[in-house]
Design a protein around this nucleic acid. Structure first.
Lengths: 216, 216
DNA sequence: GTCTATACTCTGATAGAC
DNA sequence: GTCTATCAGAGTATAGAC
């Protein structure tokens, strides 16, 4: 979701061989940015190249000069996204203070909802569709990481360092509560009025919630 | 989301005049059920009449004998959904015990996630798309109800009957936590294994969470 | 690198036989 | 009421001029 760690290299673009010129790099990024906007709003099938081209300010054939296909654009976005999607949970430190670690994880996820709401919605769209394109990621990478961190949380509860909670539901609750502010931002804005940022007051509320939940 | 309170009457179907025959009623319901499956998975634009027809076991022209258009089917589904979407929150009783009322609201929403996951995903898809088709519902009906209940919760906190919490974020948290089990069920199944029901253990966890959050 | 023109497929919707 | 056949438009993708 942040800028790709490396220049994304040869993921699935068109010319692919050799290093790309500055204008190539720039246009690819413009297209990916426009595509993120459209895919995250309408889902893969609901999005059209026309919309993406209009959003990018380029012609439709020009899009397909930089990417092999609609699918290739979408695949690039997902690859970038998944590349960093696990980082916040991965940072949960077995050596840290349990309650502080979980609170910090919640805050990292909340920051992602604030800074990368479109990426969150892109992910939500994939899951709503049954996750056909990211099934192996979820069943392998994500699942193993969650199992590992759930085990860690269980050890913390057994040591009496946090209140006894179901570790899986604890993790799911952090996902639900933080991603909600990105995925359902349209609803929150309509309810609270457009002048409010949807995330106003979210951090104190979630801090209060998890402090009370986790205190032994 | 449950069966429409009245037979849905003349919402937008085709023959519309007079009472519908038994087979009409039945086929309309088969189509709506199939359409719910497809729209809730792919969103409005991502869904096709071919998919809906296949799911319903009817031919595509036959679909359009019962409904004027793809849009009409979708509109009927949304109308049915919104008709009951507010009920759980509306039932929050000013005369009841504050903590018990909020816990009961959470449980009603969790039951809806369990019993009507496709309706929840249909709603989620609409919000992800920016809520173009249900904007007036959210800005008016939903907003006013939320304002009213937030006011009630504020009174409860000021009376010291529950812990001081931001009432809007409290309501959002119930939405996020309960709907997550419907909207992200695919992800939860992949992480916990298909043999678990995604909602296993959710109720005790949420009860624990809100008990701790709300106790004065 | 970017555009216009176009091929071809998919999709929503209609006509008309049965 | 249900089907086959079909149309018009939108959608992805390619060809080829500039």
């Amino acid at each position: 979701m942040p800028a790709p760690k490396k220049p994304a290299a040869e993921s699935s673009g068109t010319p692919a061989r050799g290093s790309r010129s500055r204008i190539q790099q720039r246009n690819r990024q413009i297209i990916l940015d426009a595509a993120l906007e459209v895919f995250s709003t309408h889902g893969f099938r609901g999005a059209t190249l026309d919309q993406i081209a209009a959003q990018a300010g380029l012609s439709k054939p020009n899009l397909l000069y930089y990417f092999d296909s609609k699918d290739a654009i979408h695949r690039d976005l997902l690859t970038q996204l998944l590349d960093t999607w696990l980082d916040p949970l991965r940072m949960l430190d077995p050596e840290g203070d349990p309650q502080a670690e979980i609170m910090a994880y919640m805050r990292r996820k909340l920051e992602m909802a604030r800074d990368f709401p479109r990426e969150s919605r892109l992910f939500a769209n994939e899951i709503l569709q049954g996750a056909p394109r990211i099934e192996s990621f979820i069943c392998n990478d994500l699942r193993h990481l969650v199992d590992e961190k759930a085990q860690l949380i269980t050890e913390w509860t057994q040591a009496g360092r946090i209140a006894p909670v179901d570790p899986y539901h604890l993790i799911f609750s952090i996902w639900a509560l933080t991603q909600h502010y990105a995925d359902f931002a349209a609803q929150i804005r309509m309810i609270r009025g457009a002048q409010h940022d949807p995330l106003d007051g979210a951090e104190p509320f979630l801090a209060q919630l998890y402090t009370r939940l986790l205190s032994p």
